[in-house]
Design a protein around this nucleic acid. Structure first.
Length: 571
RNA sequence: GGACGAGUGGCCUAGCAUGGAUAUGGCAGCAGCCUCCUAAGCUGCAGGUCCGGGGUUCGAAUCCCCGCUCGUCCGCCA
């Protein structure tokens, strides 16, 4: 249930009534007012021209015509705005009742009929995940959690690029590079153990034409469906994926299904795409390679040709991705892809090709800019990288040091357990708190942050709530909340009431950075309340305040869960 | 060369779709707050040509045009 929703609706209803009474036909936009002034506000400026009257006078007229109701306690005009104050006692009781009865389900939207297929991560299985790409799983997983809470049926999928030179090269490296030539792995994990072979194979390929020949032979055999080669490559990708998967688990990222690119070669779907595209009048050939002339469907640049076969007739990456998308459309109503910004043009071509094939559905893409290092772009091949595993280790170490600094009463195990909740959470939060399209430069001191706008700040508020609730012997969960009239109490309740709306907006607009912003706002409102009034032993206020603390704890926990961040009971 | 995205106090960042009241937070800085539910906290102070220049408008961080800087792409790679 969304406690705030009915208040906004009421504002619209009352305003429309008043406008009808005045004989004015208009749809006005409802804003949230400045925090210390009004709850809702409607600018009357757009009406000025139509009514040939000053905005201030219009606002006065409408204000006089509005009849306040049980939900709206006050309506007034100011500076050309129509302001509304809501009935705080009613909001408080609705909000408290909603949170305390729905608990971990508070913020959940109505079940939606659409099935959503969300593709994310999909990094090439040629090395461990590095922070340049780590935005992908974190954005994808957070969006998935958010959409699920908003009521959608979501399945997440990782498209494994097991076809093509990169993975074949890695497989070649594992078979042909002697162990003695590979520097020892920095950790005992399959992805880290294998990446040395990948680098070495790249070096060999660059310097030795014989190696280039071997690899291209292998590639041809693989694409022709040679079982032995397919098994070698498949097993290599699987081993790499094992390591990647365990890194993802460390940051609570779950992937429901893995779909292998080779599937679309084996089952003939890619070939079907080729024959469909060849039927298009846009299709031409160049030395035996087929392409579509995209012209106005593409973007301007050096070329608007979209090749979908090589001269030898084999398919290209995007051709297979086309087959994958057709497959996805059969399984879902909405397809969302989380992609790096380097995929933008490719996706535009893919969408154009889908249209040419007569497909009416198109994927919806969320693009993110790369995280680079101060010295430039990350590269697994060149070894210019910061791995996600290393970042997580560092975050956990720093969290452990912080816990040790302030808790002398805990066992080593307990401290470690807390640190494991704090470190990865801090990393997740820092990545999802900024808009996906903003370019980031990775700096250790920014990547792990325990104060201010950070995960530990939100977690700490949760721990404080838990601590209070742990100390009480019990309380009346039906306590009268109308006595919560302190400024910090009213503010906290107001923020609590916003949660369902935030989840919906973040999900539907694909703007997950609203979630950390909300978490910070809620934690901050709680901290102000916590510092201003006592809860335990506060006499007649105690029960109502304990209810407020419990409601805050549920909402903080739900907000954290939606971000994939743990909610520690103590820290 | 072209296309797409980003540019907001010293640093990071929200707001931009749908123009509207004094531009949102955080970090760092300064001054305070632990006999009281965890100070990973709270309060206050200071800090702004919203990249630059034009334009539209009663009103522009937001819309349009021209530049600048950075990122990304423009392959019979994936």
């Amino acid at each position: 249930m969304d406690p705030m929703e009915s208040f906004g609706e009421e504002v619209r209803r009352l305003t429309n009534e008043a406008l009808a009474k005045l004989g004015v036909e208009a749809q006005l936009e409802i804003d949230v007012g400045p925090a210390d002034m009004a709850d809702f506000a409607i600018p009357c400026f757009p009406l000025a021209k139509k009514l040939r009257k000053a905005p201030a006078a219009i606002a006065e007229d409408i204000a006089a015509a509005v009849v306040p109701s049980d939900r709206i306690s006050k309506v007034w005009a100011a500076n050309g705005y129509l302001n509304f104050k809501i009935n705080e006692a009613l909001l408080a009781s609705l909000t408290m009742k909603a949170v305390l009865s729905e608990k971990e389900l508070y913020g959940t939207g109505e079940r939606k009929p659409q099935k959503v297929l969300l593709e994310h991560t999909s990094v090439n299985p040629t090395g461990p995940i590095h922070v340049g790409r780590a935005r992908n799983p974190l954005i994808g997983d957070t969006l998935c959690r958010c959409l699920r809470r908003a009521g959608y049926d979501v399945t997440t999928e990782y498209y494994v690029n097991d076809v093509g030179k990169q993975v074949v090269l890695l497989a070649w490296g594992i078979m042909n590079v002697p162990e003695s030539e590979v520097p020892p792995a920095d950790r005992d994990k399959t992805d880290h153990m294998l990446v040395g072979y990948y680098r070495k194979a790249n070096e060999r390929m660059e310097s030795d034409p014989a190696v280039v020949k071997q690899i291209s032979d292998m590639l041809v055999k693989f694409e022709a469906g040679d079982p032995a080669t397919a098994e070698q490559v498949g097993e290599t990708a699987e081993r790499m994926l094992q390591g990647i998967r365990s890194s993802l688990e460390r940051v609570s990222v779950n992937v429901d299904q893995y779909t292998w690119e080779s599937k679309f070669i084996i089952n003939g779907a890619a070939k079907e795409v080729v024959s469909k595209l060849k039927a298009s009048p846009r299709c031409s050939e160049e030395n035996g390679a087929s392409y579509l002339e995209l012209d106005e469907l593409s973007r301007q640049g050096k070329s608007t040709k979209f090749f979908f076969t090589r001269s030898d007739g084999t398919t290209l990456y995007t051709t297979r991705d086309l087959a994958y998308h057709l497959d996805k459309f059969k399984r879902a109503d909405v397809c969302i892809n989380v992609l790096g910004e380097d995929q933008k043009l490719g996706m535009l071509h893919l969408v154009a090709a889908l249209k040419i094939m007569g497909e009416t559905k198109a994927p919806e893409c969320v693009y993110y800019a790369f995280v680079s290092l101060p010295e430039g772009r990350m590269s697994t091949r060149k070894g210019v990288v910061v791995y996600l595993d290393d970042l997580l280790d560092e975050a956990e170490d720093l969290a452990m040091a912080e816990v040790r600094k302030r808790r002398t009463d805990l066992s080593e195990e307990k401290m470690y357990e807390i640190a494991k909740q704090i470190g990865p959470g801090a990393v997740r939060y820092n990545i999802i708190r900024v808009q996906a399209e903003k370019q980031l430069v990775f700096k250790w001191e920014d990547a792990i942050n325990f104060e201010g706008n950070s995960a530990p700040f939100v977690q700490y508020a949760h721990a404080r709530c838990s601590s209070i609730l742990k100390r009480t012997g019990g309380y009346d969960r039906d306590a009268d909340t109308s006595i919560l009239t302190h400024d910090t109490e009213k503010r906290l309740i107001h923020v609590l009431s916003l949660f369902p709306g935030i989840v919906r907006e973040a999900g539907e607009k694909r703007k997950i950075h609203l979630l950390p912003a909300y978490g910070h706002e809620l934690a901050s409102a709680f901290n102000q309340f916590y510092g201003s009034v006592p809860v335990l032993k506060s006499g007649e206020h105690e029960d109502a305040r304990l209810c407020l603390v419990e409601a805050t704890r549920w909402t903080l926990r739900n907000a954290l869960e939606t971000m994939g961040i743990a909610a520690p009971e103590e820290m």
